[in-house]
Amino acid sequence: MNKKIFLPFFALIVFFLFLFNLLIFASDKTGSDSAKKETQKEVEILKEKIASKVAELRRQNFQAFSGKIVEIKKGEIEIKDYNEEKKKVFTDDLLTKYYLIKDNQKKEINFSDLKKDDYIIVSGILTDKGISANMIFVDEKYLVDFGKIVEKDKNEYWLKVVTLTNETISLDIETFTKQWLLNIKSLELERTGFSKIKEGDMIHFVAKDKKNENNRFSAQKIVVIPQEYFLK
């Protein structure tokens, strides 16, 4: 090849190789920059996901404990839960807050307002020693149960009920007791009276967990499922 042709040709090759290198470098830089941004974005998304998952888990696992006060002294309360199991609750003069729940409203109270046999809800952290209470709510305890009516007293308006666990409960049907009967055709609940309740029917009831002067529970409300439903 002629020297005059070879030199410009060689110069051009070098020039384009340089240009090519520049292009590669530029594309690499753009690629690595966008990759960095992409990674940062992914990290941010991951952080957000972890934070929301932690919040969700916290919400899902934030539990409360409830029970009747069996013993109370400064900084420590002993409760007996629904399982008759005793639990210790530790209070803090500065941190623990106390409320009374009544008529679907809460009112702030003091530690000194708590007394034996009060039913309390404790929110806090469960440790090996007991519960470190953040908040304590004094609430009403309700008995919600069901069973078969085995006896009906028409004179004193009470019912004897045998539950699924073979426990016998006597229920007073008071003037304030809301009484519902299941319509077995429409499966709708209808208002009813004591006279329509029969021995053998199933009864679902809610009562305050404190016996009255007759040593029976006063029913707040009842739902009766007639025995005929089960004979269909």
Binding site: N2, P8, F9, L12, I13, F15, F20, I24
Partner: peptide, 26 residues
């Protein structure tokens, strides 16, 4: 000269083809 022009043209084409192939693969 005609040869110089041809060399420049071939150099440009060669450079571009080479660059395009590499960029395409990336």
């Amino acid at each position: 000269k005609k040869e110089t022009f041809l060399a420049i043209f071939l150099g440009v084409v060669f450079g571009f083809i080479f660059a395009l192939i590499i960029l395409g693969s990336i």
